[in-house]
Amino acid sequence: MLHWIKSLLVLSFLFVASVRADPLQKSFSDWQMTCNNAAFCVARNIPGDNGLVMTISRHAGVNDRPLLRIDYGSAYSGELPGGDLKDNLLIDQRRLKPDLKHWTVEPHHLATSNAIAIDEFLDLVMEAKSLQLTFDPKALISLRGMKAALLLMDDVQGRVNGMSAWIKRGDRAIWDVPPQPKVPALPEALPQPAALTREETSGLIDYGTWRVNTDSCSLDPMRREVSVSPLTDTKALLLVSCEMGAYNVIDLAFEVTREQPYVARGISLTLPFTPPTINERQLELINAEYDAATGQLYTFGKGRGLGDCGSASRWQFDGNSFVLAEYAEESTCDAWHSSDDWPTLWVSQSRSTPQQR
């Protein structure tokens, strides 16, 4: 009887403390929080164009690998002038002197992955309004929204009311958290296809320029750019530019037989989730590039010319369609980081690399 009651309690806990694996990106006042399908979450203050940013990240499960960092200067601003962060931080206009024993300390970068050090620092700043620099009052981290962002992070990872929670802490043991959600495995990479011959390339580019069905293209055929790559030994990928802006080109994609008479099939990219800014699952091929050696297709949609915001994705060809491998998005245009460092909303597990001929 006692064993049966314990089983019911365990099942009840598993129902309540579950990990949400739906990707999300939300803003809370001056903070933005992003979680991917593995329930890895990262929060930071926005905007970052004042040069000073605090970033807090954490994985789901017991092996949470937390990280808290404060950075002055970005990839866009470069190194900024001024004294060391450790000696020049203010919290609500008062000197902040954190214990940095378990921190990596550089002149303009402070970071720690020590759980106790992170807890201690969060206790110092949780109820404050701002962090700023003594020598640059404009370099300010607003703390409005940080608590709400971290509470959602705890909720997504099933930590609320547990000892591992950062905000709403309870008595549940620190190890008593749901495991990290499994991420999907990519299909096995296909053998690298034979390179296109000069005749194949010439014929397919001519077909893509004048004869493939591009009724939805707004660009005049004379202004369209056509690229062609081998998909398999019998099929090729045609990318035809159809709309062009200041810094984005939207393509149509077609799978075409490599030999005449050409038979074309339109290719579309369907996301397994709905992104926060697009609100639909059909993804346009923006600034698309295809790597025939790996069978991977890349898209990169810039939110503005600087390339500090937008979305980027990577897809794996499985012989019939493209499967999403990774999706990253930065909705805040604040000159903080480039696409290599945008927060991810979707990740996957690679199985193998293509066989070489």
Rank of each mutant, 00 (worst) to 15 (best):
L2T: 01
L11M: 07
L11W: 09
P23M: 15
F28H: 13
Q32R: 15
M33V: 12
V42M: 11
V42C: 06
A43R: 08
N45E: 00
I46H: 07
G48K: 04
H59A: 13
D71Y: 07
D71S: 14
D71K: 13
G73L: 05
Y76K: 01
L89P: 10
D99M: 08
P107W: 12
S113E: 14
A117D: 10
F121N: 15
F121L: 13
Q132N: 12
L133C: 14
K147F: 06
A148M: 00
A149V: 02
D154F: 05
G162R: 10
D171Y: 07
D171G: 04
R172V: 11
W175E: 13
P184I: 13
A185W: 02
E188V: 04
P191F: 02
P193K: 07
E200A: 12
E200Q: 11
G203P: 01
I205R: 15
D206W: 09
T209W: 06
R224T: 07
S229W: 02
P230T: 03
A236K: 09
E243A: 12
G245Y: 09
L252A: 04
F254W: 14
R258T: 03
V263M: 02
A264S: 14
L271C: 05
T277R: 06
N279S: 02
L283I: 08
Q296W: 00
G305S: 09
G310F: 15
A312G: 06
G319M: 04
V323I: 08
A325V: 12
E326W: 09
E326V: 03
S331W: 09
A335H: 02
W336F: 10
W342N: 01
L345Q: 05
W346D: 06
S350G: 06
T353S: 04
P354R: 10
Q355G: 15
